[in-house]
Amino acid sequence: MKWLLRSKIVYLVCLLICLGGFFFALSKQQNLSRELSRREQHTRLSTEQLQKLAQTITVKISASELLGSGTLLKRQGQIYTVLTNAHVLRAAKPPYQIQTPDGRIYQANVLPVAKLQQDDLAVLQFRSPDIVYPVANLSDLSNLRVGDEVFVGGFIADLGHQNQSNLTKTQFIFTSGKVTLLLDKALEQGYQIGYTNDVRKGMSGAPLLNIHGEVVGINSLHKDPLWETPEVYQDGSQPEAYLQELITRSSMAVPVKSVNSYQY
């Protein structure tokens, strides 16, 4: 009887080990399938596709003249939310206007989002009762690596041409480059992503896109500023010397978070 009982116990132990191995293999296969499915959904877009996408989600922000660019963040009914840099709005007093990709001009309201006080970001809203505009898809820093290709499309002043109202015309500029640094913690004003893209005045507030067409940041600073000042982290410490040099030689962006982070 003892031998029979011992045999049953050994059999049950072996059965449990086999079942455990089976479920582990099944779980691993399911995780692999999910990962492959995720990669299929995040297909790489061509440069032409990325440029067209950038043009559909980028707006002009102006007062009496072009102040900068903005990113169509979300739509809720007839209300659209636009994300830009705080320094764009500091360039002129309100009221501000938003010009959408179809050329229509809307009056903009600035939202006092408390969560953004430490970052060079600002949120505006406008109402479009009859036109539906595409909005951005967001992605965080976890999906970005140094060396990844990134793209910026924004508006600059075309100083060589003026219209009949004596206002400077603008043109849409699209640039490509690669990520040079991803800081572990944010600098003052929230800058954390560095890249090689050549950006110009007026492109502040434009979306920084990855190869999948997702917005990973808001373009904020151009590289090689005229006045070099040591960068400081938000906690008051300073980056090491080699990072300081790399920051200076890089255009910089504030990373985006979830849409809910920009709600008032």
Rank of each mutant, 00 (worst) to 15 (best):
Q55L: 10
V135Q: 05
Q162P: 01
A206S: 15
E240F: 09
N137A: 13
H212N: 14
R6M: 13
I61C: 05
R127A: 15
N85I: 01
M1G: 10
Y233W: 04
M203K: 04
Q192T: 05
L19F: 12
N143P: 01
P129S: 11
Q97L: 13
R38C: 11
I57C: 07
V113G: 00
D119C: 01
L141S: 04
A122L: 01
V199I: 15
V179N: 02
F151G: 02
D102E: 11
G236C: 08
P129E: 10
K52Q: 14
L53E: 07
Q49W: 04
I193W: 04
E65R: 14
V135G: 03
V232D: 03
G194M: 03
Q29R: 15
R75G: 05
V88L: 07
N166S: 13
P112W: 00
S176R: 15
Q78I: 13
T84G: 05
Y262A: 00
T168Y: 04
Q125K: 08
V199Q: 06
P255N: 04
P207D: 11
F151N: 02
Y133H: 10
L53H: 10
S142A: 09
E40S: 13
P94F: 02
F155T: 01
L209G: 03
Q78E: 14
Y80S: 02
T81P: 02
L243K: 07
E35G: 06
N163F: 09
L124P: 00
S37Q: 14
L121S: 00
S33G: 13
T84A: 08
Y242D: 14
P94C: 06
T180L: 04
L116I: 00
L246C: 06
P230H: 07
K257C: 06
G68L: 08
L45E: 06
I105H: 08
D140C: 08
P255K: 01
Q97W: 12
K93T: 08
F172S: 05
P239H: 03
G153D: 03
D158K: 10
A206H: 03
G190L: 01
G153I: 05
G190E: 00
L226Y: 11
S69K: 05
P129C: 06
L221M: 13
S69H: 04
Q41A: 14
Q55M: 12
